[in-house]
Write a protein that binds this DNA or RNA. Structure first.
Length: 505
RNA sequence: GGGCCGUUAGCUCAGUUGGCAGAGCAGCAGACUUUUAAUCUGAUGGUCGUAGGUUCGAUUCCUACACGGCCCA
């Protein structure tokens, strides 16, 4: 059965067609955005277009608000200024949600509101489904994520989040380009899931008759470009990790990575701090951001915290004293009976698990976490002063890792050994490991310049700077389970109910 | 994977200690030339997430499942 609301709209559509009005036009010549139009003096002729959001009818007079990309603005219809047929259409056949084009002139109402007085109007696109409620908007989180377009129509705050997201991305591009970084694109379909310890998505390349992996990171391809002589490159794009979903993890997420030849991790720490502080200055009032009930201070030099020392402080365990999973697991069992060491299948998984459960929740204010144990990241350079740790840093904000960077490992022989270790961890059951990439090591054998690279989680940064507590809220269309609602299309319902366009009255 | 919470009209939400299902907005019919959450009159609109069970009777209680959320691993 066709819903009454939809049937009423369908009948109007049918009536319009009977009157010779095409309800789905091919375009409309717009002279002003609503915002620009309403800034013009009274009497100015304008052509505006937008979605009908409100309609207040007074017999021979009507007021409406249209919404376009610039915001909302009032338009009016008066019987004595419009052709009779168009006044009839405006008052009888329009529905909230319809997209209309209006030709008219500016005037100011008695209440002082700038308004476009309609002289001619055209229905540009008929809406068959009703919009969310005009006052409360669309609140249901699932509906907002599944039908983001309705969220964008109904909730101004949602539009602002995504406009800010686009602004931040654009700003970071300009920032990198001002420092002579070249934007590049590298494969999302990769022969080996490399560049991060993560479980990949697998897909099938039919023409090449082989399996490929959706990239978990662009890292090794960007460093191949450094070998090729492109000294500063960046890539902004999606990565895919086939792992758990929560407030700070999406399986498809946006990463900004850059690499600079001849920089080390210290150079990148300065650069990252400058970049993030510049973004905060540009998009937030001042240097502070409110996030999960806390005030985060991005200004000044961020403190540096040693990974190993922080874990030792929190647990009493010096992870560098252990070279095997079994040895570390024994000490964890003895000191931290609450931690289930057996749940972590490899040495790096156990070290990382200790850090995530005991240290990371405490790292709220922006800080650098540095010098991670060497087995955690196979692509990072060991520290010259202590080869048990890496010349590496992460930026943590609100207990979220938003940046990871290091001096890159450029020694092919050591790279081979380190990748082999990953294979061993995988053999012991750790599914979040990096695959060996012989191509990449071959490339390193030609000589890779010393360099440092950084990956910045764009979704996380945007969530922080828009005061959203989950990444889902800053991604237009997050992945969800199948929608089990038996929602029929309007066009199918009408067909099955025996409706046709010429039996209406 | 485990625990808890939620799912009622197109939207936002009430409600039923188990007994005819409620409001506002939207929609429908009508009035109205200065409204802006317009107003007024009238008539509408529901498989109470899905499937079972208990019961004279289930939207309400029980079980399973689906989807979503939060917390834990």
């Amino acid at each position: 059965m066709v819903d009454d609301l939809i049937r009423a709209r369908w009948e109007k559509l049918t009536r319009l067609r009977e009157l010779g009005v095409e309800p789905y036009k091919d375009g409309f010549s717009v002279s002003h955005s609503l915002k620009a139009a309403l800034a013009e003096p009274d009497g100015t002729p304008v052509r505006v277009a937008g979605r009908l959001m409100t309609l207040r009818k007074f017999g021979k007079l009507a007021f409406a608000h249209l919404q376009d990309g610039s915001g909302q603005g009032q338009v009016s219809f008066q019987a004595d200024l419009l052709p009779a047929a168009e006044m009839e259409q405006a008052s009888k056949l329009l529905d909230l949600g319809d997209v209309v084009g209006i030709e008219g002139f500016l005037w100011t109402t008695r209440k002082g509101e700038k308004t476009v007085q309609t002289e001619r109007f055209a229905l540009l696109s008929k809406a068959l489904r009703p919009l969310p409620e005009k006052w409360h908007g669309l609140k249901d989180g699932e509906a907002r994520a599944r039908r983001r377009y309705l969220d964008l129509i109904a909730n101004e705050a949602t539009r602002e989040v995504f406009l800010r997201r686009s602004g931040i991305v654009s700003f970071m591009r300009r920032f990198l380009e001002a420092s002579d970084f070249l934007e590049v694109e590298t494969p999302m379909l990769q022969a080996a899931a490399s560049g991060a310890a993560a479980r990949p998505f697998v897909t099938r390349h039919t023409a090449l008759d082989r399996d490929l992996f959706l990239r978990v990171a662009p890292e090794t391809y960007l460093k191949r470009l450094l070998v090729g002589g492109l000294e500063r490159v960046y890539e902004l794009g999606k990565n895919f990790r086939n792992e758990g979903i929560d407030a700070s993890h999406l399986q498809e997420f946006t990463m900004l990575e850059w690499y600079a030849a001849y920089w080390n991790y210290r150079d990148n720490m300065r650069f990252v701090q400058d970049l993030v502080q510049s973004v905060v200055r540009e998009f937030c009032a001042g240097t502070q951001v409110r996030f999960q009930g806390q005030l985060l201070e991005f200004g000044g030099d961020w403190p540096e915290i040693s990974y190993v020392e922080a874990v030792q402080e929190a647990t009493g365990i010096d992870v560098l004293e252990h070279s095997t999973r079994e040895s570390l697991a024994a000490e964890v069992q003895a000191r931290l009976p609450d931690v289930d060491a057996a749940a972590y299948p490899s040495l790096p998984a156990l070290v990382d698990g200790l850090y995530k459960t005991t240290v990371r929740p405490r790292l709220v204010q922006p800080c650098f976490l540095t010098h991670h144990p060497a087995e955690l990241v196979p692509l990072a350079r060991r520290s010259s002063t202590d080869p048990r740790v890496l010349d590496m840093f992460q930026v943590l904000v609100g207990s979220w890792e938003i940046v990871k960077g290091y001096s890159e490992l450029i020694d092919p022989e050591e790279q081979y050994r380190r990748m082999s270790d990953q294979r061993d961890y995988r053999a012991s059951g750790d599914e979040e490991t990096m695959m060996t990439e012989r191509d990449y090591i071959e490339c390193m054998e030609y000589g890779m310049p010393p360099n440092s690279g950084v990956g910045l989680g764009v979704d996380r940064l945007v969530a922080l700077l828009t005061e959203n507590e989950t990444l889902r809220s800053v991604v237009f269309f997050p992945s969800l389970r199948d929608d089990r609602r038996e929602e029929r299309l309007v066009v199918e319902s009408l067909a099955q109910s025996g409706e046709s366009g010429d039996e209406e009255t």
